[in-house]
């Protein structure tokens, strides 16, 4: 009985002892393992850091590419705007030329010249010397073009580059349409220049007056002319 009791006590003490020993052993093992884990974690950390650096490098590169592209775009835009300006200038020029050639309707300040046959024709004289002839009209038109007229119309009919004016007896034919006297020749351009060039001493108006033709010159704020039809 006594022996047994002692054994029980020994058993109890050894049980606790063994438990403590192994538990401590396990505990130590558990605390040494985290170091390995730490190392693994460190490696992983390193790996991710490397990856991050790579990504940042790539980002940087891409950013630089974007900058480059933006600059390219800017350059192209400048080029386009320059081209657009050139086109605009060209269009302006074309429009101006179209206005002059008569492909577009035109309006602006200008001058009008009205010529009519002389009212008094002495009976002993030749009537031909007192009426307006095609050469007078041509003279006026040429003088006006020389003075910088942009568009000219006779009795409202516009003169083009291939127009013609000639006499058919008492009337004048402009591009095949007859007009009787008086004739009103309108010119769009600088009115002062036009008038001065016409009224030059021994100029067009003097010639007309010498030919017994009545002339009336006046400025007009706006003259409108239509485009060529057909």
């Amino acid at each position: 009985m006594k022996l047994r009791g002692r054994h029980v006590i020994f058993s109890l003490v050894l049980f606790v002892f063994g438990f403590l020993i192994t538990f401590s052993y396990q505990q130590t093992k558990n605390f040494t393992q985290p170091n390995e884990l730490d190392e693994q974690e460190w490696e992983r950390d390193f790996f991710y850091r490397q990856q991050l650096i790579q990504f940042e490098d790539k980002n940087n590169q891409l950013q630089r590419e974007i900058d480059q592209k933006r600059q390219d775009i800017l350059r192209l835009e400048r080029q386009l705007s320059a081209e657009a300006e050139e086109i605009e200038i060209a269009v302006d020029k074309k429009t101006k030329l179209q206005l002059i050639t008569g492909e577009l309707p035109i309006q602006g300040p200008g001058l009008f010249v009205t010529v009519r046959d002389s009212e008094y024709i002495p009976s002993e004289e030749n009537v031909n010397q007192y009426i307006v002839h095609d050469r007078h009209i041509q003279l006026i038109i040429n003088e006006m073009y020389s003075a910088g007229a942009e568009a000219i119309a006779i009795n409202g009919q516009r003169i083009f580059s291939d127009s013609y004016v000639y006499c058919v007896g008492p009337v004048i034919s402009v591009d095949g349409i007859q007009y009787p006297a008086p004739f009103t020749i309108e010119a769009i351009g600088d009115p002062d220049t036009l008038q001065e060039s016409l009224e030059m001493p021994s100029g067009v108006i003097d010639i007309l007056l010498n030919d017994q033709i009545e002339v009336e010159v006046g400025k007009k704020q706006t003259i409108e002319m239509g485009a060529r039809i057909g």
Partner: peptide, 14 residues
């Protein structure tokens, strides 16, 4: 018995 309990304690600890 003590040896058995020692073994049991060690096993339990593990």
């Amino acid at each position: 018995l003590p040896v058995l309990f020692l073994v049991v304690g060690i096993a339990l600890g593990f």
